[in-house]
Design a protein around this nucleic acid. Structure first.
Lengths: 251, 251
DNA sequence: TACTTAAGTTCTGTCTAGCAGAACGTGATT
DNA sequence: AATCACGTTCTGCTAGACAGAACTTAAGTA
């Protein structure tokens, strides 16, 4: 059973500042991430640790706001407002128009899926992706979050971030581009990645990582990797230039 | 100045049930829709009518949940969690895999942009869209909401919805497919649309509207419209079949 | 350099609105 | 019939959200 802000005891994280009711509302929304799209009142209650009556009340507000909707069968679903605002978020990066064509070109010339990742706290977020035409391919969706410590794109986001503390091992691995990873994030997947820069508030900064990935059965050999790497370097340079980072190719 | 739940007086809408704090939080998020992605504390306060101190407190929760983020320059932006949940919403329709290829085929054969609209309360929502290659084209983004009473797709969503009350005028206009609109939503745009059905909980129901649209300079003549209409009818039928609505082509 | 205006932030006493939890209704499943 | 699980309604208590003033920067303006 849940308890209200326990001020004395084992002091559970005890979020500083903020509004309890809002935290709960967001917890309800976030619970849907692991229950693919549909949840009953009881499920929500269980997943969040909130009383059913509490969920009911908060859900009324969420529903009114269009962040949640309820079907006749009583199941809750996420609401259209999330969709609208989510796309607004994606577009607020204002780089979609530049990234998409680059990804398409990469898919075209390499035949494999291409993605653009940005760092988001301690994970990396797939902001854009274009799928290869191959029937068998690795699967990452736009919006998915992956760990920062595995996979070529993850290494790039840490190793080429001027603000990050980089381990000696990673630093040496970052010595030359492109970065290659085979079977790291997933045993059957290989990936090649390069950094992308942009002109930011305080000069040139890391914008994200451009990556091409696919099953290692198609990508593992050095010649294929060389070709993919060449395409990535070219497109990455192009994209960085479009983002106003002319000469920042090297850290 | 804002006031708390006014129980007596002029009784402003007076939302039934729900949680005030959550309503406010959602109002803050929704305010971003009209201020393209970035807002200062003062702007939020003004747009929502909430005190700055209140916004600050609620924003702390939103930020913690990843629904909002704050930059060094103090401006708030929407957060990545919205992006994730938004895409989850889109995918919860589970029809993306079927709709995308259909849209691509339409763009390929007609040369114009193709979209899939669903009804969302009293507006229509662009759930998926594939852009034409033409430099000059009409502009509708995925996630955008348009009025229900204008444009071919809007008519379809009302006229072919078995639950909707349909005016005599609209009914006669719906007599034969496809539906065509020229210069309705926007003076320079022409569109052609057909309904898409699916097997739902209580039998076959309207799933959405499939539409092809572009500048009327390219679409207005009857021959072009005939061709687009033929492609739409074919793809719409195909899509409906994929969604389990075999013989429901006519209302 | 001093004055003005506006933005962001911190603090606190008051009071209300959100909460827990019990109680109830309803429909499946056994 | 009996049990179970789910959704919903209701209520008294009090913790926690709120308004608003006060303070701190920061950027104009003259």
């Amino acid at each position: 059973m849940p308890s209200r802000k326990v001020s004395g005891e084992g002091a559970p994280p005890k979020a500083e500042g903020g509004v309890d009711a809002v935290d709960r509302a967001l917890a309800i929304l976030s619970a849907f991430a692991s229950h693919d799209g549909q949840m009953s009142l009881a499920q929500i209650s269980e997943a969040t640790g909130l009383y059913k009556s509490t969920v009911l009340r908060i859900a009324a507000s969420l529903e009114r706001g269009g962040f949640l909707s309820r079907q006749e069968n009583k199941l809750y679903r996420l609401g259209p407002q999330l969709f609208r605002l989510g796309l607004l978020y994606q577009r607020s990066f204002k780089i979609e128009d530049m990234v998409r064509p680059v990804l398409r070109r990469l898919v075209e010339t390499t035949g494999e899926s291409a993605s653009f990742f940005v760092r988001q706290g301690e994970v990396r977020l797939c902001l854009f992706r274009e799928e290869s035409q191959h029937a068998v391919r690795d699967h990452v969706m736009e919006g998915a979050t992956l760990t920062l410590d595995r996979g070529a794109a993850g290494h790039v986001l840490v190793g080429y971030d001027s603000r990050a503390v980089v381990s000696e091992e990673l630093r040496s691995r970052m010595a030359r581009l492109p970065i290659v990873s085979i079977g790291e994030r997933s045993a059957e997947v290989a990936a090649v990645a390069v950094p992308v820069y942009r002109r930011g508030a305080g000069g040139v900064e890391l914008a994200g990582a451009l990556t091409v990935s696919g099953p290692r059965t198609r990508i593992a050999d050095t010649e294929t990797i060389r070709q993919i790497g060449a395409a990535l370097l070219e497109q990455g340079r192009l994209l960085s230039r479009q983002l106003g980072a002319d000469e920042a190719w090297r850290l």
